[in-house]
Deep mutational scan, measured.
Amino acid sequence: MTEYKLVVVGAGGVGKSALTIQLIQNHFVDEYDPTIEDSYRKQVVIDGETCLLDILDTAGQEEYSAMRDQYMRTGEGFLCVFAINNTKSFEDIHHYREQIKRVKDSEDVPMVLVGNKCDLPSRTVDTKQAQDLARSYGIPFIETSAKTRQGVDDAFYTLVREIRKHKEKMSKDGKKKKKKSKTKCVIM
């Protein structure tokens, strides 16, 4: 069974824990209790493949930012979460993405942009803004509501699919490099 290491990042209060708990335990946590770091595991079937999701729910508070490099190193894919009623959390996505790329030393890291709290009427981040940002990053965008469960499975499952595509691409690139290195030079 394939294991996928997913990391949920975003500013404090955007609903990272609520999304994760909704996926794992099928219930909505409405009281806000700032996370330092929590880890969850769940076995699911995605596109006919049974897999184990190892999900790291991270601290959004700035005082825990020193811990970010460590979990970013171990993560295979990242859910970059903002709240649709919090423009600052949307603007912060850029910083999370840049930090992930720096730590992973790669421009090509599996990510999904997630606009959470889409059940709320007080939207300050337009869907088109988020779609445009995701398009500019070359990553999928999904709106979710941890409260109603809308888009929750889709967000995590899409990230797994992005990781699969990335692994497939990397193995193809690896095979191309191996083929090239088999060419021999004969000096007579």
Rank of each mutant, 00 (worst) to 15 (best):
Y64K: 13
S65K: 05
S65P: 13
A66V: 08
A66M: 10
A66W: 05
A66Y: 08
M67E: 14
R68F: 06
R68P: 15
D69H: 05
D69F: 01
Q70V: 05
Q70H: 10
Q70W: 03
Q70F: 05
Q70D: 14
Y71I: 11
Y71P: 11
Y71K: 04
M72D: 10
R73L: 07
R73A: 13
R73G: 13
R73H: 13
T74L: 07
T74K: 08
T74Y: 08
T74D: 15
E76A: 11
E76R: 03
E76Y: 13
E76S: 07
G77L: 09
G77S: 02
F78S: 01
F78V: 07
L79F: 04
L79W: 01
L79N: 00
L79G: 00
L79A: 03
V81M: 14
F82A: 12
F82R: 00
F82M: 12
F82K: 00
F82V: 08
A83T: 06
I84S: 15
I84Q: 15
I84R: 10
N86V: 02
N86E: 11
N86F: 01
N86W: 01
N86G: 11
N86D: 15
T87E: 15
K88S: 13
K88N: 07
S89C: 05
F90I: 12
F90R: 04
D92F: 07
I93V: 08
H94L: 14
H95A: 14
H95R: 14
R97S: 09
R97P: 03
R97N: 04
E98F: 01
E98R: 04
E98S: 04
E98Y: 02
Q99G: 04
Q99A: 08
Q99P: 00
I100C: 04
I100G: 01
K101I: 06
K101H: 09
K101L: 09
V103T: 08
K104M: 12
D105A: 08
S106H: 06
S106Q: 11
S106P: 04
E107Q: 06
E107W: 08
E107F: 11
E107P: 08
V109A: 04
V109H: 02
V109F: 11
V109W: 04
V109T: 05
P110N: 03
P110V: 02
P110F: 02
P110H: 02
M111A: 01
M111L: 05
M111F: 11
M111W: 05
V112E: 00
V112W: 01
V112D: 00
L113H: 01
L113F: 12
L113Q: 01
L113S: 01
V114H: 00
V114S: 01
G115F: 14
G115D: 02
N116A: 15
N116Y: 00
N116I: 14
K117V: 15
K117P: 00
K117A: 14
K117E: 11
C118H: 08
C118S: 10
D119A: 04
D119Y: 03
L120A: 15
P121L: 10
P121Q: 11
P121H: 11
P121T: 13
S122R: 06
R123P: 10
R123H: 12
R123K: 11
R123V: 12
T124Q: 12
T124R: 09
V125W: 10
V125F: 09
V125T: 10
V125R: 08
V125L: 09
D126S: 09
D126K: 05
D126I: 06
D126R: 04
